[in-house]
Design a protein around this nucleic acid. Structure first.
Length: 679
RNA sequence: GGCGGGAUAGCUCAGAUGGUUAGAGCGCAUGAUUCAUAAUCAUGAGGUCGCGAGUUCAAUUCUCGCUCCCGCUACCA
């Protein structure tokens, strides 16, 4: 049974307002969503395209603290940069709002309240770090301490940025509050959880049985999660930045961002159409489509649907066409490492070239796997495809029509068989294009549109109107008429992808009221219709321009390397007493083997002169078990034993960490007896 | 280690419920052409479809094992 839809609600992932938007965001989410929205609108369908900034959460609160401003200052800054750059880039949101809006606060707490009242949550109490001076619980990011792995003194409660390990606050050695600097205490706190496990059965049915048509990456990721079994997830946090939990006894608690953010789609819809927002979210004949990146698959396919279902009155997404990631010049895009092409900078560096980036990001979109953006490819696609094929055809058609017919559409007389064949191809483009767009295959769809220009170029080359004009003006007229009809068709076909260029063609041909349904027709421009003077659609991009951009990235890379190569700052002085508490020894490795089912762990048997001991060490990625046997190493002998993967580790092997994260085990320069103390 | 995604021409990617010559664009070579931003058009070269085994009359397509890349996840005293 195929569902019938009468309107489409398109959402695009809410960008996190702790930085500007980069090409990875665009290629993964906003460009495809915009293409889809424009396409449906052109077809005359009822469409709503929702966007907005995601402005809560710990990283923003922390960034504000670091810069000595309020979280609101941070999100204000980036919200407006992001909003402006989307506008300038031609992303046609019906609304671009934010999760700090009044509407959102009302909507999100209303949503929570409803779930609270209908018993959708479970309450749980747990122990968390509390800052007695600041009188608040500390979010993971608000606790710093020594990383148990690499010893970095400034590790966060959720992650150590020096070694990349993810941590829990309880892992930190010598935890400190990032707010007051005091040692936090463990204190009980109550939180609400969404019991995803209770939703597992219908989710399995709905996705695994009901949505086999979803993209393989999306379907596969969902299946993976569902097969593993779902766990309850906390929906609240102890934090002062966010939507307050709207129940008694929840002072100092806010909604967890992952719960808060997707409700933003709903809030923004309400803000956009306060009168009739419900039809977009509650009527079965609305098609809800989430455009997201692969990092968001689980939230949009499992968690958010569970929230909507628990609420009871909302529809579920019909599709979630998630894209993979875009890399930049071979490396992962990273906001913190400044490894990105920022949209607002691109718009400054390449004024009027929105469509070039839209083209490149669509043609090379990471639809099925991660892809790489390179400036060389950007240049090649512009020069060899946009300029040479698309722009060139339009220019040829315009110039020839001016040359022979004074810029007026000539009369189309009798068609030859060859004409008809060409026109048939034109019609075929329409169905191919629609088929691909309807199935979220935008990369392929763009090729179809490009094919239209190729058909035009071939037609011109075969007909040679510049020769024919000397002998047969009537035939030349027909040919040029058809070329201009193809040009008008190009304006339609490219509008979802390259709206600025489509607009320019419309200006050149003085024809603005083109509709999608007219695609494939050859009566779009009447004989005698007057054209604008020819102007180029695209211009070549020179090597210099590209080299500048590459240089900019090389500079970033160099700066990053310098930063990374710098030795970590020295830690605070300690008393000799503290040092002497440590019992560091030399031991000889007598046995060494991998720990089963662990990638990083080696299990070592050490001759310590005291009868031997077992130590586990996370060096399996850097050493083969065989090459260590017989070596003398240094280890901390009196570290409290701890069980890892069921094996008790009695100490810690000392290693030095290189800039690239590789580990070098420390070995005495001379042979000493096992058990010798290191002083 | 578990799970998911990927591996097809120099590059970026399509594709096949298994069936004679595996496709596109770019790049490359040759030719044609000059209306056009030295753009276009035609032709061609280029692929043991990641590796190994199995099922089959037939596998690049199905099954199993392995390798490498990406992601989620466990592990790093």
């Amino acid at each position: 049974m195929k569902k019938v839809f009468n309107r489409t609600l398109i959402t695009s992932a809410l960008p996190y307002a702790n930085g500007p938007v980069h090409i990875g965001h665009l290629a993964g989410v906003y460009v495809p969503a915009d293409i889809y929205a424009r396409y449906l609108r052109m077809k005359g369908e009822e469409v709503l395209f929702i966007g907005g900034s995601d402005e809560h959460g710990v990283p923003i609160a922390l960034k504000a603290k670091a810069e000595g401003v309020t979280p609101q200052d941070v999100v204000d800054k980036f919200h407006y940069i992001i909003k402006k750059s989307f506008e300038d880039f031609g992303i046609t949101f019906d609304i671009y709002s934010r999760t700090t809006s009044e509407t959102h606060y009302k909507t999100a707490s209303g949503f929570f309240r409803k779930l609270y009242e209908n018993g959708s949550f479970v309450e749980k109490t747990s122990e968390q770090y509390y800052d007695e001076e600041a009188k608040q619980f500390l979010a993971d990011r608000y606790i710093t301490g020594k990383c148990p792995h690499c010893g970095n003194e400034r590790a966060y409660g959720d992650q150590c940025e020096a070694c990349g390990t993810s941590l829990s606050p309880l892992d930190l050695i010598e935890p400190k509050s990032a707010i007051s600097g005091r040692v936090p205490v463990l204190k009980e706190t109550k939180h609400w959880y969404l019991p995803l496990d209770k939703h597992e059965a219908w989710l399995k049915q709905w996705i695994l049985e009901g949505h086999k048509e979803w993209k393989t990456n999306v379907y596969g990721q969902c299946k993976s999660w569902l097969d593993m079994g779902l766990q309850p997830r906390a929906v609240s946090r102890d934090l002062d930045w966010g939507v307050p939990v709207p129940v008694e006894g929840a002072e100092g608690k806010v909604l967890y961002v992952w719960f808060d953010a997707p409700i933003g789609y709903i809030s923004n819809t309400i803000e956009c159409c306060p009168g009739d927002w419900q039809k977009w979210w509650k009527k079965e004949d609305t098609k809800l489509v989430h455009f997201i990146g692969k990092d968001n698959i689980v939230f949009h396919c499992i968690v958010f649907p569970a929230m909507l279902k628990a609420e009871g009155s909302f529809i579920l997404p019909e599709n979630v066409p998630a894209n993979e990631f875009l890399n930049l010049e071979g490396d992962k895009i990273s906001t913190s490492r400044n490894w990105a092409v920022w949209l607002h900078e691109y718009l400054e560096d390449f004024p009027g070239k929105q469509d070039v980036l839209r083209y490149v990001l669509t043609a090379n979109a990471p639809e099925t796997k991660d892809n790489d953006f390179t400036w060389k490819d950007f240049q090649a696609r512009n020069n060899n495809e946009l300029v040479a094929v698309f722009g060139n055809f339009v220019n040829r058609a315009m110039v020839l029509t001016h040359k022979f017919f004074d810029g007026k559409i000539p009369v189309c007389k009798e068609l030859t068989d060859y004409d008809r064949e060409t026109l048939k191809e034109l019609a075929e483009v329409k169905s191919a294009l629609e088929n691909n767009l309807d199935n979220y295959r935008f990369r392929e769809a763009l090729k179809d549109a490009m094919n239209l220009a190729r058909i035009g170029n071939k037609y011109l080359a075969d007909m040679e109107p510049w020769k024919l004009a000397k002998t047969d003006m009537e035939r030349t007229a027909t040919i040029m008429n058809l070329c201009m009809q193809i040009t008008a068709n190009l304006a339609i076909a490219f509008e979802p992808f390259l709206p600025f260029s489509a607009e320019k063609i419309k200006y050149l041909i003085h024809k603005y009221d083109l509709k999608w349904e007219q695609l494939g027709r050859i009566d779009l421009l009447a004989a005698g219709h007057i054209l604008e003077h020819p102007e180029l659609l695209f211009e070549k991009i020179e090597d210099d321009t590209i080299n500048q951009q590459v240089q900019k990235l090389m500079d970033t890379k160099k700066a990053n390397e310098l930063k990374e190569r710098k030795a970590a700052p020295q830690k605070a002085n300690i008393a000799f007493d503290d040092f002497s508490k440590l019992d560091i020894r030399v031991g000889r490795i007598v046995e060494c083997q991998r720990v089963p089912k662990a990638d990083k762990l080696l299990q070592l048997r050490i001759d310590d002169g005291l009868g031997g001991r077992t130590i586990l060490s996370g060096i399996a990625e850097h050493y083969q078990p065989g090459e260590l046997v017989g070596r003398n190493v240094c280890f901390i002998a009196n570290l409290e034993p701890r069980k890892i993967r069921g094996i008790e580790s009695q100490g810690m092997i000392l290693s030095a960490e290189n800039a690239d994260g590789s580990l070098a085990v420390i070995q005495p320069l001379k042979d000493v007896l096992p058990g010798s103390e290191v002083k």
